[in-house]
């Protein structure tokens, strides 16, 4: 059985920026252990000699010409913003006082 503690899940939630409730932390630590047990079997066949595939198409960088094309107006781009001011997204404070 994979060992995922409540604290582990709390740390993952912090990294993922989700303020999970106590109930959810308890639930998820149990569920994750079960799911991880089920998915860990990929390790059985993932030998050193097998190359990884990250994408179905063998694409390298795809370039395009650097040219101006029609795009959203500032009003359109801001149309879904929770808050805006002077044609900008208005966001809560990002840096602390001491920064």
């Amino acid at each position: 059985m994979s060992n995922i503690s409540r604290d582990d899940v709390a740390n993952l939630a912090k990294l993922a920026r989700i303020d999970l409730s106590d109930d959810e932390l308890n639930h998820l630590s149990n569920e994750l252990a079960v799911i991880l047990d089920a998915v860990a079997r990929v390790q059985e066949v993932a030998g050193e000699d097998v190359p990884p595939t990250s994408h179905p198409l063998p694409l390298k960088n795809v370039f395009r010409v650097d040219e101006v094309r029609p795009s959203l107006t500032p009003d359109e781009a801001l149309s879904g913003a929770p808050a805006q001011e002077e044609q900008r997204f208005k966001v809560p404070q990002i840096l602390g006082e001491e920064q």
């Binding site: 991880l36 998915v39 990929v42 390790q43 066949v45 030998g47 097998v50 190359p51 990884p52 595939t53």
Partner: peptide, 12 residues
């Protein structure tokens, strides 16, 4: 162990 191995399974 997890994502890397899964990508290898994708190849297989």
């Amino acid at each position: 162990a997890y994502y890397g191995s899964a990508q290898k399974v994708r190849t297989l």
